[in-house]
Amino acid sequence: MRIGELSERTGVSRRLLRYYEEQGLLESTRSLNGYRVYEERAPRVVLRIRALLDMGLTTRTIASVLPCVREGSEEPIDLEMCPDLLATIRREVAALDARIDELERNRDSLSRLVRV
């Protein structure tokens, strides 16, 4: 399928699809006229990328996670525990925890200002 069809099927803009390719998350080949051509599994890959982005992962981290996704699963994200995957996920959870702590401190500081 071409990029327009992939965009329509996934609801993801052509620009973002090209970005995912640049980041090594999505693959295409080129037709004789230079158009991008995607495999039939591409919509599933894009939905996985979107799900991982929604979890707060960066595209760099997603590139290391995607090879660990089980193909053929009905779940968008069904992971095999590839080497280093558990450590990657733990790092991401720790980073999110630190960010939550920071946001709570910021909220508390702002709340104190309006109570004065």
Results as ranks from 00 to 15, higher is better:
Leu6Lys: 11
Leu6Ile: 13
Arg9Val: 02
Val12Ile: 03
Val12Ala: 05
Ser13Tyr: 06
Ser13Trp: 05
Leu16Thr: 07
Tyr19Trp: 15
Tyr20His: 06
Tyr20Asn: 06
Glu21Ala: 03
Glu21Gln: 06
Gln23Pro: 13
Gln23Leu: 09
Gly24Ile: 01
Gly24Tyr: 10
Gly24Trp: 09
Leu25Tyr: 01
Leu26Asp: 00
Glu27Thr: 15
Leu32Thr: 10
Leu32Val: 13
Asn33Cys: 12
Tyr35Trp: 05
Arg36Lys: 03
Val37Met: 12
Glu40Gly: 11
Glu40Ala: 08
Glu40Asn: 13
Arg41Ile: 13
Arg41Gln: 15
Arg44Tyr: 10
Val45Pro: 04
Val46Ala: 07
Ile49Phe: 01
Arg50Cys: 07
Ala51Val: 14
Leu52Ala: 00
Leu53Ile: 14
Met55Trp: 02
Leu57Asp: 00
Thr59Ala: 12
Arg60Cys: 01
Thr61Gly: 04
Ile62Ser: 02
Ala63Gly: 10
Ala63Tyr: 05
Val65Thr: 02
Val65His: 01
Leu66Val: 00
Val69Thr: 11
Arg70Phe: 14
Glu74Tyr: 02
Asp78Met: 06
Met81Arg: 10
Cys82Phe: 02
Cys82Tyr: 04
Pro83Phe: 04
Pro83Leu: 06
Pro83Val: 06
Leu85Ala: 11
Leu85Thr: 09
Leu85Arg: 10
Leu86Gly: 01
Leu86Arg: 03
Ala87Asp: 14
Arg90Thr: 10
Glu92Tyr: 11
Glu92Pro: 03
Glu92Gln: 14
Ala94Asn: 14
Ala95Val: 02
Leu96Ala: 15
Ala98Asp: 14
Ile100Thr: 09
Glu102Gln: 08
Leu103Gly: 07
Leu103Thr: 14
Glu104Met: 10
Arg105Tyr: 04
Arg105Gly: 02
Arg105Phe: 00
Asn106Trp: 15
Asn106Asp: 13
Asp108Phe: 02
Ser109Met: 11
Ser111Asp: 15
Ser111Trp: 09
Arg112Lys: 15
Val114Met: 08
